[in-house]
Computed example of a mutant assay.
Amino acid sequence: MKIKRIALIGLGAMGVFFAPRLYEAFGENFYIIAGGERKKRLESRGVTINGVNYRFPIVTPEEQGEPADLILIGVKGYGFAQAIEDIRHQVGEHTLILSLLNGVDSEEQLIQAFGEEHVLYAYMRMSIVMKDGKADFDPYWGKIHFGENKNDVLSDRVLAVKEVFDHADIPYEIDPDMLKGLWFKYMCNIGENMTCALLGIPFGFFRISDSANWIRDNAMREVAAIAQKKGIDIGEKEIAEQDVTVMTIPPENKPSTLQDLEAEKLTEVEMFAGNVIKMGKELGVPTPINEMFYHGIRVLEEKFTKR
């Protein structure tokens, strides 16, 4: 299997991690899927990444040309359902799809929409601040994790995507157990993304505040308890590992939910705390900290949506 044409939908904090390097490596065979006002904005203003303004090739969702071999989905959670519809004309017989979303159920939604033969598992470990169409970041701080559900032996599909990332100099890791990796990332997102958003603090606060870390750790424990009920083995060992990792994140960086609130945009709180609450009720796991996150962040949204 050889990947030659690559599409990206969503040119935000996750998308900009890939776009410059894929464009440099694949030229006009790399393109953005965008329509309407977003297409006009990208054509007129472009996007500035590490001081360089890019005007990437754009294909609208309605265009029916040659399908992509690989599609990366980097939209926000609340835009995912629309993204599924927007990529339909780009999905061919052999197209592979990677979801870069933060939750734990986007792959299942893609499988329902296109079939499991088109979907690989993926998640991001990175922190990028994007504001007003500009992003400055170390392109080697962070990576994409991807693969089949299990990767004891690498499939042809995984090897094909690996070749793309090698060619484009994109950092990656192929997890032996992708579901465990997805849930670990989700647990960390709940702990860090939600805590920072509710309290209005950057990552650096975890270096100095025991109280912030208490909230973060106990929020992660709620997710770990749900994961254990689902047969996914994450717990205190993984929380302790993340206690170390979070100290290495640039202290001025802010997670996506806090960035959204500061920009007076709606957040992905439904996909984060809202989904934890839903799964907790289904499985009999108490989630009081995530309930606090959910309602507290909704109030912060209401400060600009209801004024």
Results as ranks from 00 to 15, higher is better:
E270R: 05
K40W: 02
E241W: 06
T245P: 05
L8S: 03
L258K: 03
V59W: 00
R21V: 09
G12K: 01
N253C: 10
S209V: 15
L22W: 00
Q90S: 08
G181H: 01
R38G: 13
F184P: 01
H118G: 09
K229F: 02
I234G: 06
R41V: 07
V158R: 07
K162A: 09
F80W: 03
V246P: 10
L8Y: 03
W141K: 14
Q228R: 09
E37M: 13
L101P: 07
R207D: 11
I97Y: 00
I9S: 10
V244L: 14
E63P: 05
N218T: 11
G200I: 11
R21S: 13
I234W: 07
A225Y: 01
S209I: 15
F80I: 12
K185N: 04
N50A: 02
I49M: 02
G280S: 02
E62Y: 08
N102L: 04
E24G: 04
S256Q: 07
G77E: 06
M292H: 08
E163G: 06
D86E: 11
E93S: 11
V269C: 06
K185E: 01
M1Q: 14
L120W: 08
Y172D: 08
P61F: 04
G46I: 11
L154D: 13
F56K: 04
D177V: 02
N290E: 06
I58G: 04
G103K: 00
V52H: 03
K237V: 15
Y54H: 08
R38F: 05
K229C: 05
E62P: 13
Y186E: 09
E107Q: 14
T305C: 07
E282S: 08
N102E: 05
M14E: 13
N193Q: 09
F114V: 15
T248F: 03
C196P: 00
R21L: 04
K143S: 03
R55F: 12
I73A: 11
I6H: 06
V223R: 04
A68H: 05
S211Y: 07
K76V: 11
I232E: 05
E291H: 00
P139T: 00
I190V: 14
N193Y: 03
T257V: 12
H167V: 12
L120R: 10
Q242S: 09
L154M: 14
A19I: 11
Y31Q: 07
G15P: 13
A225R: 08
R21I: 10
E238I: 09
D152M: 09
I249M: 12
F137V: 14
D152F: 08
D156K: 15
D233K: 09
L266E: 09
A224E: 11
M124G: 02
E148I: 13
E222P: 15
A13E: 15
L70C: 13
V59R: 10
P288A: 03
F205W: 02
E302K: 07
Q82C: 06
T267S: 04
P20H: 01
I97R: 00
H94K: 15
I190K: 11
R55D: 07
G27L: 12
V153R: 02
M130R: 12
A83Q: 10
A13D: 12
E262P: 13
G65L: 08
R41T: 10
A225Q: 10
R125A: 01
L258Q: 02
K76Y: 01
A225W: 00
A34V: 14
H94E: 14
L11M: 12
I84Y: 02
E270G: 00
A225E: 12
G181T: 07
D105T: 15
L96K: 05
S44W: 01
